[in-house]
Computed example of a mutant assay.
Amino acid sequence: MQVDLSHRIETGMTVYPGDPSVCVEPHAAYDQDSYRVSAVQLGSHTGTHIDAPSHVLADGRTLDAYSLERFTFDAVRIDCTGSSDREPITVEDVPDDEADIALFWTDWSTLWGTERYLDHPYLTPDAAAVCAERGYAVGIDALSPDPTPTQNSEETDPSGLQAHHTLLGADNLIIENLRNLGKLPDRFELRAYPLALGGDGAPVRAVGIVDR
Score class of each variant (00 low, 15 high):
residue 195 L to P: 06
residue 124 T to K: 03
residue 160 G to E: 09
residue 185 P to H: 11
residue 56 V to R: 01
residue 56 V to Q: 02
residue 175 I to Q: 00
residue 98 E to W: 02
residue 59 D to A: 14
residue 122 Y to R: 00
residue 24 V to L: 13
residue 62 T to Y: 03
residue 164 H to K: 05
residue 90 T to G: 04
residue 9 I to A: 07
residue 1 M to I: 10
residue 186 D to W: 10
residue 126 D to K: 09
residue 178 L to V: 09
residue 171 D to V: 01
residue 17 P to M: 11
residue 30 Y to R: 08
residue 65 A to E: 15
residue 8 R to F: 08
residue 183 K to T: 12
residue 142 A to M: 10
residue 29 A to N: 05
residue 10 E to V: 06
residue 93 D to P: 00
residue 105 W to G: 00
residue 203 P to C: 15
residue 82 G to A: 09
residue 99 A to D: 07
residue 49 H to W: 15
residue 35 Y to I: 03
residue 76 V to W: 04
residue 138 V to D: 05
residue 180 N to I: 04
residue 166 T to C: 02
residue 68 L to K: 10
residue 10 E to G: 01
residue 90 T to K: 02
residue 181 L to I: 14
residue 8 R to S: 08
residue 115 E to C: 03
residue 19 D to L: 09
residue 15 V to P: 05
residue 117 Y to C: 02
residue 27 H to N: 07
residue 58 A to M: 13
residue 3 V to N: 04
residue 179 R to P: 04
residue 21 S to F: 04
residue 4 D to M: 06
residue 129 A to F: 05
residue 66 Y to N: 05
residue 164 H to R: 03
residue 135 G to L: 10
residue 158 P to C: 01
residue 103 L to I: 08
residue 51 D to S: 07
residue 184 L to P: 01
residue 80 C to G: 04
residue 190 L to S: 08
residue 75 A to R: 00
residue 201 G to W: 01
residue 71 F to V: 09
residue 73 F to G: 09
residue 34 S to E: 10
residue 121 P to N: 05
residue 151 Q to R: 11
residue 154 E to F: 03
residue 88 P to I: 10
residue 124 T to A: 05
residue 100 D to W: 10
residue 188 F to T: 07
residue 211 D to P: 06
residue 200 D to E: 15
residue 121 P to Y: 02
residue 177 N to T: 15
residue 149 P to A: 06
residue 16 Y to W: 07
residue 47 G to C: 12
residue 58 A to L: 15
residue 169 G to A: 01
residue 192 A to V: 11
residue 119 D to M: 08
residue 194 P to L: 07
residue 2 Q to E: 14
residue 143 L to I: 15
residue 131 C to M: 12
residue 20 P to S: 06
residue 202 A to Q: 01
residue 150 T to A: 13
residue 39 A to N: 08
residue 151 Q to L: 11
residue 210 V to P: 06
residue 126 D to V: 01
residue 7 H to Y: 13
residue 14 T to Y: 02
residue 32 Q to A: 10
residue 124 T to D: 07
residue 157 D to N: 07
residue 134 R to C: 08
residue 119 D to I: 04
residue 165 H to V: 00
residue 92 E to I: 04
